[in-house]
Amino acid sequence: MRDAFVERLIELAREDESIELLTGDLGFGVLRPFKNEFPDRFHNVGIAEQLLIEMATGMAMAGKKVICYSIGNFPVLRCLEQIRNDAVYSDSNVKIVEIGGGYTYGQLGMSHNATEDMAVLLSIPGITIYTPSDKHEAKLVTELMLKQQGTTMLRLERPDSRTIHDDPVLGYKSGDMIKGLSGKGTAVLSYGGISVIAKEVAREKGFAFYSSPMLKPLNEQTIAAELSGYDRVVVVEEHSKRGGLGSIIESMFAGKVKHPIVLKFGLPDEYAPVIGSQDYMRDYVGLSKDKLLEAIGD
């Protein structure tokens, strides 16, 4: 996912000279291809996330499209006020790229786990949020992100050979979910790398599956109408159950007399007392394939 982003970014940067990349001292090796090809458009601001977003806002005010690259929570929580007050409020072309959604860096501990980032950003008016599930969606949204005016956030994970799409995604309409499997009774929704697991679960159960390459803004009316055809909607996300996609779906149905039952699978409202690999942590919070198969039922 991460490498697909960098590849597509480089292709787009060849066509658009206004694209610049700022990093908060992270991306060793990963960003080298960009730096090698565009040394004048690459800049390491150092370990200074507030400056990262402020400086990007200023550069965007001067006509640039600025990628702000960092990992985990750093480009979101450390500089949240800069995102809100500077980048978003001035509708600047600041493109935040976070590597390490969920438990990508599980062993590194709580400080590096991006497990509330969506909840926080979803509450900010006007920001656009991209949440690709595999390398194909990562390429797709990298392009959307750079064509979208305003402040955007892209949540990525490390490279993973597993995909939910066999081929590049064509004909995607911004704000939609992508139907990956047809099925009856239950629809499983997911975003991010955990989608691979969610899709396997859906396939084994004979459920429908949808990935959500974006969380904001969503075409809520279309999505609600589509999901209303199911008895149950199961949301699987590597993020707090409070304030993520599950909460968005619940809000979509709020006030409606008849709607599918919504089941939310995500992180509980407490920090894990242990650390571990991404697979280990997913299992720990009930997001492994086996635990999901059991918990979702039929």
Binding site: Q50, I53, T57, G58, A62, Q82
Partner: peptide, 12 residues
């Protein structure tokens, strides 16, 4: 906030 934004402008 303003100085950091100013640095971004001046840098560009």
């Amino acid at each position: 906030h303003a100085l950091g934004v100013g640095v971004g402008l001046a840098y560009a």
